[in-house]
Design a protein around this nucleic acid. Sequence first.
DNA 1: ACCTGAACACCGTTCAAGT
DNA 2: ACCTGAACACCGTTCAAGT
Lengths: 228, 228
Amino acid sequence: MATKIDETAARARAPLTRERILRAAVAMADEGGIEALSMRRLAQELDVVPMALYRHVANKEDLLDGIVDLVVGEVDPPETGTDWKAAIRRRVLSAREMLLRHPWAVRAIESRTDPTPALIGYFDEMIGVFRSGGFSMDLTHHAMHAMGSRLLGFSQELFEDTPAPDAAVDAEMYRVIAERYPNIGELIETVMHDDASVVGGRGCDDRFEFEFALDLMLDGLERLRDRA
Amino acid sequence: MATKIDETAARARAPLTRERILRAAVAMADEGGIEALSMRRLAQELDVVPMALYRHVANKEDLLDGIVDLVVGEVDPPETGTDWKAAIRRRVLSAREMLLRHPWAVRAIESRTDPTPALIGYFDEMIGVFRSGGFSMDLTHHAMHAMGSRLLGFSQELFEDTPAPDAAVDAEMYRVIAERYPNIGELIETVMHDDASVVGGRGCDDRFEFEFALDLMLDGLERLRDRA
DNA sequence: ACCTGAACACCGTTCAAGT
DNA sequence: ACCTGAACACCGTTCAAGT
């Protein structure tokens, strides 16, 4: 009887739309990572036969394009009426928050071969802010590239989610690391020490580090603009 | 008879080793992208039954760890005896060249949940260069984070491989883009114009843009070091 | 003890057979 | 015309049966 009601509810559910599919896909990726998102599991989640998805989505690539656009759309539009620096700063931090909400998004975006509409719009608006901040088109161009590049090549969030299940195991691990990688050992020691005051403080203050990099870049760009 | 010789040659081939498997995997990813790399295709390429790979590799994750370490190992070690700025600069450019040789590497590295040994070593050496350049441990820490972050959130190589098969199609596409995205339109126009002298010049000089960002960051870091 | 074929539990997508 | 079950060509990996 409960089953009967459930079935009725399922059948009465809103009809399948692209929107509904994309939202379910985002939820699925949020929950289990991008590799947990499959057409078949998605169909199951929506109480629908796998092939039904293909009426609203050309294929899986199209689905990925769709969810990328959905989450990029979550980034706040740039504020108008503030100076360029504050506007860029706010927007970049808003983008960062979106990426924290959807940890799979970076890789999903990087896997797109063609830029999606929302992505293009995002860049367009960003360029606009630089321009109205008095940047030449040339400098704006360089600025956009600079803001997008990862200078170490690899993301360095490598040590962020090292779990600390046991202080003793942790200490032993630290000893091993420090022996083989003296510079990292010293760095960890410094960060740990500075961090002693913070409650449960281990590792880095990611938000602080991100803003450090952001301000370094923005200050550098400002200097270049004023020099010209 | 040719078949007979081929079979003999195949059987006489070097025995399966982890090294040989990893090298073949890198070659396969180089050729067809990371999604073309499968255990089964790899085994086929090595004239071996799929299960034979599992003697040298725990599973596919282990294989990916392995090829990440292999390509990270291709990055030149930091020079000693030069100043910190030149050493960092050279090494980052060396890393960039590796990433251009292996376009799949960025995503592969980002998909690793735990840092691999070569990755840890890379960071350790980089930290060492900053330290011997007179950077405090604190500033070194921030510098490492700054060099690793992507401030636009998304990589911006989005427009780089727009093909130019037909000038007329290109012009039409440009008109459409410029109408909808005025700032990108203006940027493209500027870049195209500046680029007129370059032979076949379309799009950005990626190397220049990368060095622009790198120098912006390094100059900013130097200023911070000297201030302290 | 080592090796490996078959099998399992998945994929994305095609296509022909149903309504 | 629309929908969908079965099928196809793949995956990574387990496991039991072979040597």
